[in-house]
């Protein structure tokens, strides 16, 4: 039997719930997630340039097209489908919709997750820091203006609300 045919079993937390997957060892995390029905994770380029495939692994932003599924074994993965249950991500979803940060929507899941990763490590970022944090998520529709505005707005509201709910 060729080695790549040997399926592996992964146990990880997916959007807050314990999850088990069986897959070939070389499968990209992106392919695993989409196969599991999480079609909010998008493929834009397949080489880690556009960020449309970005997800959080242990709250760190990663391009799922450049990660092997087996590398999330024992870890926690958050996709856009898990945003509603996450404090920063849920606020960002509302802010993106309210502030015009969404046009065609294809970059949006990755962009919201990248913004969430930023606010988790830096709750009060200046615009330059926001732009730097999002520089790996390409948007062709908005020119980033209203995306930056949405992140700023979400960060203000989160800080005003204060503490964990």
């Amino acid at each position: 039997m060729r080695e790549h045919d040997l399926a592996i079993t992964l146990r990880y937390t997916l959007n807050g719930k314990a999850h088990t997957s069986v897959c070939p060892p070389g499968l990209r995390l992106l392919d695993l997630l989409r196969r599991e029905g999480l079609t909010g994770v998008k493929e834009g380029c397949g080489e880690g340039e556009c960020g449309a495939c970005a997800v959080l692994v242990d709250n760190a932003l990663v391009n799922s097209c450049l990660m092997l599924a087996l590398q999330v074994d024992g870890r926690s993965v958050t996709t856009i489908e898990g945003a509603a249950a996450d404090r920063e991500l849920a606020e960002l979803q509302v802010a993106f919709a309210r502030e015009g940060g969404v046009q065609c929507g294809m970059c949006t899941p990755g962009m919201v997750l990248a913004s969430g990763a930023l606010l988790k490590r830096s709750p009060d970022p200046l615009d330059e820091e926001i732009r730097e944090a999002l520089a790996g998520n390409l948007c062709r529709c908005t020119g980033y203006v209203r995306i930056v505005k949405a992140v700023r707005s979400a960060s203000q509201r989160l800080r005003a609300a204060g503490g964990q709910p």
């Binding site: 909010g40 994770v41 856009i80 979803q93 509302v94 969404v102 899941p109 919201v112």
Partner: peptide
Amino acid sequence: SAPRPDAWDKVTGRAMYVD
């Protein structure tokens, strides 16, 4: 500046593109 009716599906990842 009326809100976009399609925004929520897009920010939740529910919008279904052809792939």
